[in-house]
Design a binder for these strands. Structure first.
Lengths: 223, 223, 223, 223
DNA sequence: TTTTAACCGAGACGGTACGTCCCGTCTTGGC
DNA sequence: GCCAAGACGGGACGTACCGTCTCGGTTAAAA
């Protein structure tokens, strides 16, 4: 109750030489967090262990991040966990398949459970949800956009697709597949998504048919 | 924060009263779990509180379920959390929109955070992942199938769509939208999913363009 | 914030055979507390270390005692820390000196710092102060009383002294000496207290000079 | 509990203003310490809060005092916490009672818990114990001595009492009473101490009965 | 007057203990 | 046998201080 009558003088004096501060310390913590994620996974990652591993104190963590979720988000960012090798095969189909394969491989790594865990905690506040999207989810959207842009340049895809919902259908379905059915994701699933769903939606047809302005509606009864 | 859990029945000591067993006890537990979910949400639900609320012991819970995730799955099932009013408007478009709106409403309820939480815990074992899909995710797929079947009967949709990946694209995208962007889901998003993505994929066209062989999608409208 | 999404399953399973409970556990804890007191002293005693030493959990301690002060009080009681060998030399003087020497020896042991520490914490509430008096301070008063009673029987002391403030002056002064000047207490101090202060106050004199009925005052000028 | 410490001077950043040094800073710290003592009491006083309140840094505190105990000792001294209005009523009895009443009143103030706390920490080293006696305990002894000297001049007390143990019995018993039984101290207790114990020990009698030179013993002991 | 060294304020740092909560297991009695 | 109650060993939580340290300053004394 009372803070402490006599604070039990720290058992021993251990002050090291140059104490780490600022960026040096921060990157040591992020490194420790990444190592923990790789070793024990997201659900078992604790602030305690990260602090221990980084040879610092919990207080140093809480000074920077409000909780483990935010720490992990930053660790992912710092670790380049969501970096993508932008494919450039010459056709939209092969680019997209290469992209999905990379994403699928990510899901198979510790990053998979991280993604699940973080999404679970976005319930808390929209602020954090946004953070997760920006720091963890970016690879997909950005890469998709680049791939599509090149397809537009090649004439494979109409420009207006770029900003439409159709653009991200492939990665959206892959993510959904992962979250529902887990990993590993069958390669057939990837080609199925691409060939049966994605390409028909985005590829230009001689009739220019697949384009649609937002909210477009094939059925007349929508009027 | 403080565990001020008011037990459902104010003061009754089942140690020395008519002791509940079997189904009676089980449903009391599930009821308590549902109440907890509604009140504090999934992340804050603990076995301890559920046991207290159900006026039973943790042992009774662990005898039946290996952990809170499994308990919650059963509670959802028992509570009809994932039941759907099958819409029947006469057109696929309206049926689908009605369906997505219902699902979207669910996501806005405690069920939303439950879904997130459960998906996060499917990392553990595929067995449990399957359970979640079957008990928690069923409403969507089943309803989608029924709606599509009726559309097939009406001639709006080709039969082979029924078993294809295209069939569930609408619900898949909705789920993805929820998991990434949270609730509430804008109604415009729903119509966008339906009109810009889903219908072009599943509706029959005179040219049969939307058939699921690779690459084929032609838009009839917009011509 | 949220308790825990996945409680990081305890690293390892370690459940022992027969788990200690009730009195067995309690005495193990008290024993551990006593050992700690002897080794590191009261100010450095922590609940954490006691729990560790007793091979139990902090929760088990907090279930029984609200804080370390109360735990230590009980440990003292259990360890017979304040037990006294009742002296019986045949004269009040020698009995009293023997008694003070014993008390002085106690103060020289870990018990000394315990007494200081506990007295410091009696600020909190009178309840606890009472506890300290009863469990930790009892030896003095009780022994004093016995010693005095025998002196009364021998005719050395008038009976009315027994309940008066004079009865405890010797131990009161010794305690005061310890608290102000610390230990060890010089043997000359003890004989000084006894011969110069205590005996003149309690021994019967033919003239009845030092005797007094309640509130009595030998000096007329006090009026 | 929450460290809601309002700094004395509302908002002034001494980093970039006229920076306090030496005595000015020191007295600001002591003032802050006294305020803290009055507000939260000794056990809850922390270096952190004092530094915050004084709008300075912990380092400035530790440069001057090795720990909070020493700081508090100085603060007491500076705050005149142990100053006494020397009574002069004309009789030893009334002087002594007035004195004890003042001391008792002190014990009822924050000074009470300070005394307890400091005494608890004298375990550490005799040096500090001496400091406490000199800075915090002085009022009693000094005043007692003055009062007694006047009584000697009036002929109420024999001169040799002045240096004997008997001289301080009244304050010693009062202190003991406070430490064991807490405050407030009943007025009857004070008169009891004075009339039943103290005066019989120090007042001169025509018979010289209660008087004694050091080590003296009115009883032909062990006879 | 200019330099320079001491000192100041702020607060980060590594660390320990706090007291609480929940985990999943186990024991105790009572029905 | 199963039930309720809850104790048990364990571990992580997030907070509060400890006493040290680093970092830019300010300021007074030395040059």
């Amino acid at each position: 109750m009372s803070p402490n009558v006599e604070p039990a003088t720290p058992a021993f004096d251990h002050r090291k030489g140059p104490r780490r501060r600022g960026e040096e310390l921060e990157s040591a913590i992020l490194r420790a967090a990444l190592d923990e994620l790789a070793e024990v996974g997201y659900p078992a990652l604790t602030m305690e262990r990260v602090a221990l591993r980084a040879r610092t104190s919990k207080a140093a963590l809480y000074r920077r991040w409000p909780g483990r979720a935010e720490l992990v988000v930053d660790a992912c960012k710092a670790g380049g966990v969501s970096e993508i090798d932008l494919p450039d095969t010459g056709t939209l189909r092969d680019d997209t398949i290469a992209l999905l394969r990379q994403l699928s491989a990510k899901m198979d790594s510790p990053f998979g459970s991280i993604l699940r865990g973080l999404l679970a905690e976005t319930t808390r506040d929209p602020e954090f949800a946004k953070l997760v999207r920006e720091r963890v989810q970016t690879p997909g959207p950005t890469a998709v956009h680049s791939v599509l842009e090149r397809a537009v340049e090649r004439g494979e895809v109409e420009p207006h697709i770029l900003g439409s919902r159709r653009a991200t259908v492939a990665t959206d379905l892959l993510r959904n597949q992962f979250l529902l059915y887990g990993n590993p994701i069958d390669d057939a699933t990837i080609t199925d998504i691409v060939d049966d769903v994605y390409l028909p939606l985005v590829l230009r047809t001689e009739r220019g048919a697949s384009g649609s302005d937002s909210g477009g509606n094939t059925e007349p009864d929508a009027s």
